[in-house]
């Protein structure tokens, strides 16, 4: 038993982190957030070339031939960079929708909770999208439509990969809070020296590590109950860490200019999109 990511898996994640740092760094994120919400098609194609969408297709079918453990590591990086777009839907459409695997097609899907992200930018919309009504989305980087009708069927892989994005976002918030606390001075010292601030940061790391262990475990077993539990903990980690990160930033955290609100808003969207808290908890309780 060695539950740590292997050397190859760590290399894969590092490669994605470097790609995103170069192609979707802070400047690009801010430009995207301040402009009209449009997908960067060139970046989408680069993600396709890097294997994000074809990752789990067999090599014989032109894919990379890897599994869920590798996928959660890459989606964690996407969450950390706050990469916009229907990444999970396009990844799951690889091999089924032409162009999805290569990143030449943008595929979105109606979520089980009746939400449809990125409908206007997508080439293909999967699921019962009839009667979709646009919403003024709380997240400037996730345009949303609402689709009438009750909750629809769930794809467990979509739940897991969304949870992985939440873990990445929670980790970014921890890093950002620690960096700010190590630099902002009040009362003649950096605020990271105060226990009240330190303990907030420690709590953020604990939430992230617990959720990450849950997501990695669920990626290995692929058991629906374990995936539901991982989503529950990852949603909480992403939302609570964004809240605490905002708090550590003080007044600056309440500004549009600080990036943390973008993480909080996306965390809310990912939490609500599929298997929100109460449903996840019920699903885990069912198995008790």
């Amino acid at each position: 038993m060695d539950f740590r990511p292997s050397e190859d898996q760590r290399d894969l994640a590092r490669g994605m982190r470097e790609l995103l740092a170069g192609r979707f760094g802070r400047e690009a994120l801010r430009a995207a957030a301040d402009g009209p919400a449009r997908l960067d098609r060139a970046l989408w194609k680069e993600l396709g070339e890097a294997g994000l969408f074809a990752l789990r297709l067999p090599e014989a079918a032109g894919g990379v031939g890897l599994g869920l453990p590798e996928a959660v590591l890459l989606f964690e990086e996407a969450g950390r960079a706050l990469l916009p777009g229907p990444l999970v839907a396009t990844h799951l459409a690889a091999g089924r929708v032409p162009g999805a695997a290569e990143g030449t097609a943008v595929v979105t899907e109606v979520s089980p909770e009746g939400l449809l992200p990125w409908a206007d930018d997508a080439d293909v919309v999967l699921g019962p999208a009839a009667g979709a009504v646009p919403v003024r989305s709380v997240d400037p980087l996730t345009p949303l439509h609402r689709v009438p009708g009750g909750p629809a069927g769930l794809r467990w892989e979509a739940v897991l990969l969304t949870a992985a994005e939440q873990v990445g976002s929670a980790a970014w918030c921890t890093d950002a809070a620690v960096a700010y606390a190590g630099q902002r001075e009040q009362f003649g010292q950096v605020i990271g020296g105060f226990q009240a601030v330190k303990h907030l940061c420690a709590g953020m790391l604990v939430r992230t590590e617990l959720a990450r262990a849950a997501v990695h475990g669920a990626a290995v077993t692929a058991e629906p109950v374990e995936i539901a539990g991982a989503k529950l903990l990852a949603d909480e980690a992403a939302v609570a860490n964004a809240r605490d990160c905002l708090q550590v930033h003080g007044g600056m955290g309440f500004t549009w200019e600080a990036d943390v609100h973008l993480h909080l808003k996306r965390a809310w969207v990912r939490a609500a999109l599929l298997l929100p808290g109460a449903r996840a908890a019920e699903r885990v309780a069912d198995a008790l």
């Binding site: 038993m1 060695d2 539950f3 740590r4 590590e209 617990l210 959720a211 262990a213 849950a214 990695h216 475990g217 374990e226 539901a228 539990g229 991982a230 529950l232 903990l233 109460a278 996840a280 908890a281 019920e282 699903r283 885990v284 309780a285 069912d286 198995a287 008790l288």
Partner: peptide
């Protein structure tokens, strides 16, 4: 029910964290 479900998710995650620490 949800409180128990949540606890179950937490203890499974703690078990995975243990496996990682042991690794």
């Amino acid at each position: 029910r949800r409180r128990l479900g949540r606890l179950s998710a937490e203890f499974l995650a703690l078990w995975r964290l243990t496996q990682r620490n042991v690794s």
